[in-house]
């Protein structure tokens, strides 16, 4: 495995009770690469994703970022090392406006607001160009003063994307970015995420159910089934693979008992 990968995952293993959710999963994401992780419900995607983003600690195996071992580190440590994420169920600050929410993300990455006299200045006065350009990038100018709790689902996804990008990440982790959205919206959101990530030279690692989205936007696709990585390749290769149909539609002949 190359040492300049944005993310390297080596032989991850995780069990819950007696149930082995992830076993022996290894892969890498190169700098600026867009990689999708797919598989049917219960295949271990979410567990793998949570092992990478620090929410879960693996029983065995390592996670490395740009060569540095980050296995088991928490969300804030990963943020420090240039990792940002979005959540499957949108997570925003529901009591704040879009501008305030994005500003909190921008502010967190700066020193000024946490020292005197910046700490005593109102956030309005800290409204920096970075916040404004992020809001513009995700197309929310018209909604900037709306409270997040009142936004439509698709717009919340955009707010989250802006928040994730506020720290200028080198790796963006997205958990089911288009879940619960209408077909047209999904396409637009993922296209937006990929466009901004490319412009900012960030890699994206995402899990996704919608194969249309995956095949159109991922540069490489990883396929999981029953806790193991069973295939990896370009969208074209994956689309042709009989294995993927088998994994998804469940009419395999080769199944062995659990």
């Amino acid at each position: 495995m190359s040492m300049n990968g944005a993310l390297e995952v080596d032989a991850l293993e995780k069990s819950f009770g007696g149930f082995r959710a992830v076993s022996g999963v290894s892969f890498a994401v190169a700098q600026g690469e867009i990689v999708a992780l797919i598989g049917p419900n219960g295949a271990g995607k979410t567990t793998t994703f949570n092992l990478v983003n620090g929410q879960l600690r693996p029983d065995r195996g390592r996670v490395r970022l740009e060569g540095a071992d980050v296995t088991g580190l928490g969300a804030r440590e990963l943020w420090r090392r240039g990792v940002a994420r979005t959540f499957q169920i949108t997570a925003t600050f529901t009591s704040m406006t879009v501008r305030e929410t994005v500003a909190v993300g921008v502010m967190a990455a700066q020193a000024g607001p946490w020292r005197l006299p910046g700490a005593l200045r109102r956030m309005g006065a800290l409204d920096v160009p970075e916040t404004r350009s992020l809001i513009t990038d995700v197309g929310l100018d018209a909604l900037a003063e709306r409270v997040c709790g009142t936004l439509a689902y698709g717009d919340l996804k955009r707010v989250e994307l802006a928040m994730a990008l506020a720290s200028r990440p080198r790796l963006l982790l997205m958990d089911e970015p288009t879940a619960g959205m209408a077909a047209a919206e999904r396409e637009a959101l993922m296209a937006l995420a990929v466009r901004i990530a490319r412009a900012r030279r960030a890699a994206i690692f995402f899990t996704e159910h919608d194969m249309g989205v995956v095949f159109r936007h991922a540069e490489r696709v990883l396929v999981m089934s029953r806790g193991e990585l069973v295939a990896a390749g370009t969208p074209a290769e994956i689309r042709k693979s009989p294995l993927v149909r088998e994994v998804y539609l469940g009419h395999a002949a080769s199944g062995e008992p659990e």
């Binding site: 983003n53 929410q55 928490g74 969300a75 804030r76 943020w79 420090r80 940002a84 994420r85 959540f87 997570a91 925003t92 600050f93 529901t94 009591s95 704040m96 909190v104 993300g105 967190a108 990455a109 989250e160 928040m163 994730a164 506020a166 720290s167």
Partner: peptide, 13 residues
């Protein structure tokens, strides 16, 4: 308060 995990992922201590 609004979303602790989101806040943490955004780098807040």
């Amino acid at each position: 308060r609004d979303h602790a995990r989101r806040a943490e992922a955004s780098g807040l201590d």
